[in-house]
Nucleic acid binder design. Structure first.
Lengths: 193, 193
DNA sequence: GTCTATACTTGGATAGAC
DNA sequence: GTCTATCCAAGTATAGAC
């Protein structure tokens, strides 16, 4: 799933810039020229590292998923109860949304899905499935050990929590007064206590 | 807020096509050429009705908000309890998301907010505030009359419900197995019974 | 690996005839 | 109101020198 070729230092800076732009203005909102300006290289040089825009998009999502997966593993190692783990999970999104300019890479790409290259879409889908599987497992453990209480199935709660957090970033962009992922997550979790 | 000039038949078809495209591929994902093909007119003719792309975007959101507002009023007239009203509200989104190709106009534009004309953003913000105000009122009434039970404030629950439903459409696009707005709404509401 | 230069295409927008 | 024709800028991508 993540063979992710080694990236040269220049390629890394390009991926950094691309992720930044995707979170800010979306895949259809940036061009190689923007990347070029951000990294101080010419367009042709960017193309040398990533032959097409789709290649670049795939690289961004692969790395993003990879990093996210590492964060999820870290949470499980560090925190021992389901409520704590789920709160830390919400904080991952809070962090991304904090400057209010950004949104989850895959939240953005999920919205744009109908105009993306299939290769990019496949990576986005992988990201969501990765998240849903992790949430389901954490929630299932919580229900079993009674650190969480709910009449619903773990898989349903997982989809709810993910949708809530993704939606929180989206709505929070247009309505500054709205609560962020962290507070909405807390409210959700308080219903499972 | 919605002086919305009268739209000629041709202008209406253009707005229809533009809304369709925004829900499918987003504001940055369509061009006047796409509109042109959809309505069977030349680009220049489209420009005659809407001088700029931003003008067209504003017209789409104004009409969308206007129609949505009418639906909300209809719900209040038709249904008398808060749970019923909130369920009907979720169905409005379910309807838009049903063919899985579409997403809420303002969910999409909210994601793209950093690359939109300020005039379009203002309309999107208006849409969300309209929705939040309606939800807050309905939920407040429900809490007062005990058809809803929650330790949280109506305004917090309103943001939660809106974020959940917007997120549901977004996630549902990439993960077909995910539950839609209706089922996620039901799950949310079951926690307030 | 990076550059200049350049195709080629699309996108937003306007002028002016009908 | 709609059309043809056109402008100019931007976007993706490639060729070939350094």
């Amino acid at each position: 799933m993540h063979p992710q070729k080694e990236l040269s230092p220049s390629a890394l800076r390009i991926v950094d810039a691309a992720q930044d732009l995707i979170q800010e203005v979306g895949y259809n909102g940036f061009s190689f020229e923007h990347i070029s300006q951000a990294v101080g290289m010419r367009k042709a040089s960017v193309h040398h590292h990533f032959g097409s825009k789709a290649d670049l998009g795939v690289a961004v999502v692969q790395r993003y998923s990879h990093q996210f997966e590492a964060s999820l593993q870290q949470i499980v190692v560090t925190l021992k109860t389901a409520p704590e783990r789920l709160q830390a999970y919400a904080d991952l999104f809070e962090k991304a949304a904090q400057n209010s300019k950004y949104i989850c890479v895959c939240g953005m790409l999920g919205a744009e899905t109908n105009s993306l290259d299939p290769a990019v879409n496949a990576e986005v889908q992988g990201f969501f499935q990765l998240n849903l599987a992790w949430l389901r497992e954490v929630i299932q453990e919580g229900l079993s050990s009674c650190s969480l209480r709910s009449p619903h199935q773990a898989s349903e709660l997982a989809v709810s929590y993910l949708s809530l957090l993704e939606g929180a970033m989206l709505v929070g962009r247009s309505v500054p007064t709205a609560m962020g992922p962290r507070r909405l997550g807390d409210l959700f979790l308080s219903g499972l206590a």
